[in-house]
Structures are given as structure tokens and as C-alpha cells.
Design a protein around this nucleic acid. Structure first.
Lengths: 181, 181
DNA sequence: ACCACCATGTAAGTTGTTACATGATTTG
DNA sequence: CAAATCATGTAACAACTTACATGGTGGT
């Protein structure tokens, strides 16, 4: 699942403009790309030239015109193919753990302070995902199963946060007590 | 924590060649970069030109000579500075969840098959990290705290796998029973 | 007045990937 | 005899980021 398949997926849900896609991608954690113009507009052009998407220009009064993209049957076929590819294990980019890995030159106090501020960071992520569970009305809900899967995807992020918080707590206590000796 | 700080960290542990760094980085999940030559040798050159590392050429009989890099005091100072930067929340690249997000066009059976094969993938990751806990003799152990932190970093990956497996199990059962309706 | 939002796009740069080149030595 | 390991490095390309350009509308 790369960015173009993700865009195909989004468009298979409902027709969207490049600007819409940018907004959705840059706000989500699931679609982890930055959502910058350069990539999105370039991919849309490529998809369109490959006959996987088409667009209609929607003129608006007092606002710039927008190109609303939707998936062609060929696009749907390609997406389906991509969805059946063998799942890959997640890539976890936990830079904080790298920080800890080389923390030997830091004092206990400095390490504890880092753990606390990491905890704050994770808590705010957790709040974010919990909030997202409530206003999930803009999620795709084409079938009961899809509604369920989207809730489960959000749960996945919530559970990851909770596991991380437990890990932080245990690590913090042990260092504070010096009981690793 | 970017790749150059990571390399500084590795060299602050013990002097290493570019080839060593490449091996360590490409085998680890913690240091999530691919560990390709192009980046590593380029960064080593930059670090050296900035006076953050130095190298000694070690000639070997019947093997190519190697440049063994180590950190200078300036390099250590910069690393310490990087270690005290505000921790960032992890970036989770779970492409499988994106696959599920657009799985509406797949049958229940196809989704279940994907979940099973994702489970297999995660189990093998778990085994990998469990194994790594046993032969952790090549980890840095400059202090009891560092030994502890490296064990905890490995635990973090193990716990993430376990949480993922529980999530998979619950999702699988619910879809199999159709009890999301 | 200034900033944000809408909506498209481009330019310039950094980072990251795969593949190649060299060449001796060891392993299957 | 082919492949992998050791060890350095380069070339060509793909992916990604930040910033800019345009220009009207609406809010503080």
C-alpha cells in the first residue's frame, strides 16, 4: 500500500479534489504521508493519464474551480489487486527509543524528565484518537463491516498508545527506584 | 533523532567502520533506516569534515583496509544535545491498516485470509525480538542502567507485537462470527 | 491590515533506494 | 563454480519536504 493506492482507496470511497485529499491525508495518522501538494497533484496526474481516475471541473462562484476526481473501473480493479497483496509488518519509527538507546551520558533525572515529556506526548495522541472515535461520522460507512473495520483501525491506534503508556510507567518507576541494578 | 545522530550514538558506544554501521542499521528495527551505503558513507564524510568524528585506517592482510570511526569530544557534545531534545510521538507506518480501510470490495473470506497472513507476519516479528532478548550480548552495557534500557527497548517491540496479535484475534473472531452487525 | 481558507500548481532542495564497480577470501 | 562476506565507494533514480506563486473571500 503506497500513496497512489491510498489515493485510489480514498477516491473509491467518494469523489474528491486534490485539496480534499491533501486535507484528509495530512490530518490522519493512518495515512502517514505528509500530504504535500507536490506528491498529490503529481500522483493524480499520473493516475489520470493511466486511465485509473477521471475528473470533472466544478466551477464555483467566488471560489476557485476544483477538479473532482473519481475512480474508473480500471482503477477499482487495480485497487482490489493491491488490497489482496500480502500484508507487511508495520514499520515503527520510534525515535524516542533511539534517544533512550544512547542516553548513557544523561543523568537519571534527565532520563526521567524525557520519559515524562514522552508520556505527555503519547497522552495527547491518545486523546486525539479517542476524540476521533466520537466524531467518526465522516468515516466511510458503505457497509456494517466497513463501519466496524474503521472503528477497529482507530482502536488499533488507541491500544498502541495504551501499551506505550504502560511501558513508560514501568520504565519510569524502575529508573526512579534504581531497581534495575 | 535523525540518521546522523544515530550514527554518532553508535560510534559513541564503540568505534566502528562504515560497513559495521551498515550491518547494524540494516538489521535492527529500532534504527529503522535501510542502511544503504550511499547515506552512511556520505554522512560519515560530513561528520568527519565537521570535526565530530575521526577515523583510523586499519590495514588487514587478505581483506580490504577499513576506516574505523570514533567520536570526538565535539561529537559527544552534539550527541548529548540531541538526546535532550523534546521526545516526539512515534510514527507508525501500518500499511496493513490502510489495506483494511479500503477492504469493502473484498469478501469476508478474503479479509479473514489477510488477517491470518498478517498474524503470521507479526508472529515472526515477535519471535525475532524474543530471540534478540536472548543473544543481547552484543548490546551496549556500559552501565547497569544502559543494560536495563536496552532490554526495555526490546520489550517495547515485543509488547507492540503482543498488542497487535490481540487486536488481530479480536478482529478476526468478530468478522468470522459476523457479530459487528 | 493581517491572517486563514479555498484551490490549483511549480521550483528547489533533501533524503532515501536500488543497483553497480572493485577485488580478494571463504563457504556451499 | 557460484555465491556470500568483507570493505569501500559512485551513479541514477525515486520519494518526500518546504516554500513559493496566484487570487478571491471572510474573519478578528
Amino acid at each position: 500500500m503506497d500513496l497512489s493506492s491510498t489515493i485510489l482507496g480514498l477516491l473509491s470511497w467518494k469523489p474528491l479534489s486534490g485539496y480534499d485529499l491533501k486535507g484528509i491525508i495530512s490530518e490522519s495518522d493512518l495515512f502517514y504521508w505528509s500530504g504535500n501538494n507536490n506528491q498529490i497533484y503529481k500522483i493524480l496526474l499520473e493516475l489520470q493519464q493511466a486511465g485509473l481516475v477521471t475528473f470533472e471541473v466544478h466551477e464555483q462562484e467566488s471560489l476557485p474551480a476544483k477538479k473532482i476526481y473519481s475512480v474508473t473501473p480500471a482503477g477499482r480493479a487495480l485497487l482490489r489487486h493491491a488490497l489482496l497483496e500480502a500484508p507487511e509488518a508495520p514499520e515503527l519509527h520510534k525515535t524516542f527509543l533511539i534517544q533512550l538507546a544512547w542516553a548513557d551520558s544523561l543523568t537519571d533525572d534527565e532520563v526521567l524528565k524525557l520519559l515524562k515529556s514522552y508520556e505527555t506526548e503519547i497522552i495527547s495522541r491518545l486523546e486525539l484518537h479517542r476524540g476521533r472515535a466520537l466524531r467518526a461520522d465522516q468515516n466511510p460507512k458503505r457497509s456494517p463491516r466497513e463501519t466496524y473495520l474503521w472503528r477497529r483501525i482507530n482502536d488499533n491506534f488507541i491500544e498502541a498508545c495504551q501499551t506505550e503508556l504502560e511501558w513508560i510507567g514501568e520504565t519510569y518507576r524502575t529508573i526512579q527506584e534504581g531497581s534495575y541494578q
